[in-house]
Design a protein around this nucleic acid. Structure first.
Length: 418
DNA sequence: TCTGGGGTCCTAGGACCC
DNA sequence: TCTGGGGTCCTAGGACCC
């Protein structure tokens, strides 16, 4: 049976989450910033119409922020993740055939729905708004790529009222002609620029291109985009997402790091976070990579990485930290102002599938119990237990100056009704 | 002075094997 | 002097996504 994909996408998700708990700014311009309050990662519509772009550096738009009295938030991922869970739970009451695609998007299969898909989708929209306070838009079509496009128009068209159904639509070509090539799902700015040279500027142009030609010139991924635009489904609903292959923890520093000691501290801290994530998802890691990076905007920019392999896949933070620190010692360069460091864990295996090593000297059961106890304490107490290697003062730590409260996940942060 | 974080997939090229 | 062809595996880098 063929699918009918509905892409539900939250409008300005992070900004909308902040608004739910601050009704006073319902129609005011607001932005949400990245870690370290560096760049803009979410904008309300009022801000979009001011011409402030996604990814704009905060220092570049200070004047605009003042001039238009824009309310600024540091990012609050704890809040957004919890709001996301609530929205996904709401959506799941409308169909069991659902793929959670990202923190603010889900594909639903509406193939079994009788009657008007537009009416049904309006009902979904209203329910999500009522139950969670977050506005969503819905695009419906026979392929995921077309559903993305329907959503793009649904968000922008007054007439659509947040829902556009492109299944058997007489307006298909008209819609495709309105979508610039770089807005198509899977076409980034680089490929869009190359397509332009071939006279392909819109989704309509690309849908009329020869898939074979596109395959030869750009590769299979892009040939699939062409097929999807033509209505041939290449990507099915993924209800059981494949297991993760890598896991990373990386952060810019609050201020540049020049000493080996501080770089080791930061790496230890990130390795400890990576260990927590690893155990939370029931994985063990076979490979650990550390990378360090100076500003890329300077002349002698330096980027380098080191990888170590574990004889037996590990979940042990102590082992992760000591490996990470060994890597940092090899990577460190005197005189460099490091801006960022990252830990990547690869070769992830499920904990109960760990291949034992004959020459293993560690008591794996004992450290496993130790990690369990530490995780348990840390999940209920802050600051909790940490490794001395992570440092105490942590001058490199990122800064969040304007973070809102954890309204939905912390009793001490409950919203107040006044 | 000041530019995020966490992922995925594909491809080309090198190493190695018979 | 003349120096093959085909396969696999791995890795780094590119491009993309939200």
């Amino acid at each position: 049976m063929s699918r009918v994909f509905a892409l539900v996408d939250c409008n300005n998700f992070y900004a909308s989450c902040e608004r739910v708990f601050n009704p006073k700014i319902a129609n005011k311009p607001i932005i949400v910033l990245s870690n370290n309050d560096g760049i803009v990662v979410a904008r309300s519509n009022e801000v979009k119409s001011l011409g402030i772009r996604m990814g704009a550096a905060v220092f570049e738009i200070e004047d605009l922020i003042k001039k238009h009295d824009i309310t600024v938030f540091s990012s609050n991922y704890t809040l957004y993740a919890d709001m996301s869970d609530r929205i996904m739970e709401t959506l799941s009451t409308f169909t069991p055939e659902m793929e959670v695609y990202s923190i603010d998007e889900a594909f639903l299969d509406l193939a079994g729905i009788k009657g008007s898909l537009t009416d049904y989708s309006q009902k979904i929209r209203n329910t999500v708004k009522q139950w969670t306070g977050v506005p969503v838009s819905i695009g419906i079509a026979k392929t995921k790529t077309l559903a993305k496009i329907a959503n793009y128009i649904a968000k922008r068209s007054e007439k659509a009222k947040g829902v556009l159904d492109l299944t058997d639509s007489p307006y298909m070509d008209k819609v495709l002609a309105q979508v610039p090539a770089e807005k198509i799902w899977g076409i980034g700015s680089r490929t869009a620029a190359k397509l332009k040279h071939l006279g392909i500027n819109t989704a309509l142009d690309l849908s009329r291109a020869d898939a074979e030609m596109v395959r030869d010139k750009f590769g299979v991924v892009y040939a699939r985009v062409v097929c999807e635009l033509q209505g041939a489904c290449c990507y099915d609903l993924e209800q059981n997402p494949p297991a993760k292959k890598s896991l990373a923890v990386s952060r810019m520093f609050g201020r540049p790091v020049e000493s080996l000691e501080q770089l080791k501290e930061a790496a230890a801290n990130y390795a400890a976070r990576a260990g927590e994530k690893l155990r939370e998802e029931n994985f063990a890691a076979s490979l650990l990579t550390v990378y360090v990076i100076t500003s890329m905007f300077i002349k002698n920019a330096y980027y380098n990485s080191q990888t170590v392999e574990f004889q037996t896949p590990t979940t042990n933070t102590t082992e992760l930290i000591s490996s990470a620190q060994l890597c940092v010692e090899k990577l460190y360069r005197k005189g460099c102002k490091f801006k960022k460091c990252g830990i990547v864990l690869n070769g992830l295996v499920q904990q109960d599938n760990i291949q034992q090593n004959l020459f293993d000297t560690r008591d794996r059961q004992k450290t496993k119990r130790l990690m369990e106890v530490i995780d348990k304490i840390n999940s209920s107490t802050a600051p909790g237990i940490f490794w001395a290697a992570e440092g105490i003062r942590q001058p490199w730590r990122v800064k969040f100056k304007k973070r809102s409260k954890h309204y939905t996940t912390d009793w001490n942060h409950l919203p107040e009704a006044v």
